[in-house]
């Protein structure tokens, strides 16, 4: 396992979250551990698994275009004492084999780590069939499942290693493509279920996950220019939720959740569920996809159209602040 440094952060951000996990972390793990398998459903090369396929063919399995089978075979390997990583596009991984995941990974705790790549709209022109903005909702509803959405490639690397050590199913939701922004440049302790305060501010708390955290930071800068002090909390683990961090948020007049996901069932819902049961309830706005199939286009385009970029976030927050509480 390598440590996160300015150099690795820069290098890995070029590979993107998927390239870093499949091309760096997984090959390392196969060398370090003899009980680790990598599975995919016809997306070996696309996922950046070439190194694994060439160097570790004995621990690589391609099930073909058969996602239900992907989950079943992964679980079978896991029940035999292996730790198994299964990867394909987030949409097919979580939805095509959903019941298999629930039954094998959730109910029977198969030690399988799901690496869902290109979540949100990262598939761009491939269109809605390849988009995934319900995956957090459905994955977090499965008992025993841990749900992680890293902010950048470095954090994705650390999350993969955490998943390797964690005994139980994990869903790692990968956002963005190549050359994604770097959020962390310094070594830090990644702990599942422990959110990270990236910026302080007294007026509003922005809670973001996945690739949106970089945009939330950028939005906070813009808001500062308008005299609004925004704190940024990066919620890399959506389940188990860091309720201590949310408790700290409940002192703000306004809390804004931001995710490249439906507002139904994702980070926004998870936070709202928590606040709902507390005495002190902040006003909350959920930024995400508003229960619709979006108009397809490039990644940046879809995010912009849906207010999921720094400009959209800062506008929305400004409007909410000026409305008052």
């Amino acid at each position: 396992m390598q440590t996160l440094s300015r150099k690795t952060a820069r290098m890995w951000s070029r590979l993107g979250q998927r390239g870093t996990i499949c091309g760096v972390a997984l090959p390392e793990m196969l060398e370090e551990r003899s009980d680790c398998y990598i599975l995919t459903a016809d997306l070996g090369t696309t996922s950046g698994l070439s190194r694994v396929m060439q160097q570790q063919p004995e621990r690589f399995v391609n099930v073909g275009i058969a996602e239900q089978n992907l989950i079943g075979v992964a679980a079978g390997l896991a029940f035999e004492g292996n730790v198994v990583f299964a990867t394909t596009f987030a949409t097919f991984l979580t939805m095509r084999g959903y019941e298999q995941i629930r039954h094998n990974l959730g109910y029977q705790k198969a030690n399988v780590k799901l690496i869902g790549s290109a979540a949100g709209f990262a598939m761009g022109m491939f269109g809605n069939s390849h988009y995934s903005y319900e995956d957090i909702a459905i994955m977090r509803s499965i008992p025993n499942m841990m749900v992680i959405s890293p902010a950048d490639a470095g954090e994705a690397y650390l999350a993969a290693y955490m998943a390797l050590e964690h005994d139980g199913p994990v869903y790692i939701r990968l956002s963005g493509g190549l050359n994604a922004p770097v959020v962390y440049t310094e070594p830090y302790a990644f702990a599942p279920g422990r959110a990270v305060w990236l910026r302080e501010g007294k007026d509003v708390a922005l809670i973001a996950t996945g690739g949106m955290t970089a945009d939330a930071l950028e939005a906070a800068k813009r808001l500062e220019a308008d005299g609004i002090q925004a704190a940024v909390l990066h919620m890399h683990t959506i389940k188990p939720l860091d309720t201590d961090a949310l408790y700290a948020c409940s002192g703000y007049g306004l809390v804004v959740t931001i995710e490249e996901h439906s507002v139904i069932g994702g980070l926004g819902s998870a936070a709202a569920e928590y606040f709902m049961e507390q005495e002190r309830k902040p006003r909350q706005i959920r930024i995400g996809i508003q229960d619709t199939f979006v108009r397809p286009g490039g990644h940046a385009y879809v995010r912009q159209e849906n207010g999921l970029d720094a400009a959209g976030i800062s506008q929305r927050v400004k409007a909410a602040v000026s409305e008052g509480v």
């Binding site: 239900q68 079943g72 075979v73 679980a75 079978g76 390997l77 029940f79 035999e80 039954h103 029977q108």
Partner: peptide, 24 residues
């Protein structure tokens, strides 16, 4: 009881995974 049941169509994949492990 090696495997929980109740949802049809899943066990053969799991068995195949186990058999693959034994082979390898």
């Amino acid at each position: 009881i090696e495997y929980a049941g109740g949802s049809l169509g899943m066990a053969l994949s799991v068995g195949a995974g186990m058999a693959l492990h034994a082979k390898r």
